[in-house]
Amino acid sequence: MEEREKIKALKKKIFITAYKAGAAHLASSFSVIDMLYVLYCKGIVRYEPGNPWNEERDRVILSKGHACLALYVILNEIGMISDDELMSFCQPGSHLGGEPKMEAAPGIEASTGSLGHGLSFGVGIAIACKMNHYNNKIYVILGDGECQEGSVWEAAMSAANFGLDNLVVIIDDNRLQAMDSVEAIMSIDSWSDKWEAFGFETIEIDGHNLKEIENALVTKPGNGKPKLIISHTIKGHGVSFMEEVPIWHFRMPNKEELEIVKAELGILDEELKG
């Protein structure tokens, strides 16, 4: 299957899972799924399927925890989460809630949900891995709105100070937050300038161009600096009426909208049953 088709199938799975649960942060999941696909399905993140908690594994911390359905679907894709587990999303008795819970499944490295925590957690892991002389990478995925949290900048300062060149921070820069555009709510000039000033080596990419994502992830930062990838994305990517519309931060489609989703993601009626 062509890669865009594969990603469309992942989005379809995200939607069906969310539909059965009755709620999910769909638009955020759609903006970050391409990045997660490249991380896990293009050989970037190193993990052992038979030994998923290997201490020297790479770690992905989804600090913007509300997009966790995208992570669950990718972990399902690589066999870390079973189909039954995935379909239990947000149901009574499930390990998989609407925000990630540490160790609920292999690949879920941190309990996130309250924004502005994941980078500090990643800093701690990156320090510990350096102390142990591991040759692994720690990936932390932030939202651009999340960067309004002051704790992100405490963590950024410390990442550079401790020379954490094993740390890769990714901003899913979809330019929207819950109520409006990030620009309208808390305007900033340039993420790149700010992170560079905090001691990061920064790269800006089109976050829906798989080759650009891959190139950015494999580029080695110089001078012992942590790396920042600003991944320009479209919130709600792949569903026309959700794209770049703030209200889709946490909402499910009505009957008419559902028909559009079905047509655009190729979902059959029977796939939404049960």
């Binding site: 941190a110 957690f121 701690g124 892991i125 510990a128 963590a155």
Partner: peptide, 12 residues
């Protein structure tokens, strides 16, 4: 930041 980084270190 220190408290959460400590949690990250403890997880390792």
């Amino acid at each position: 930041n220190m408290i959460t980084a400590a949690a990250g270190m403890a997880s390792c």
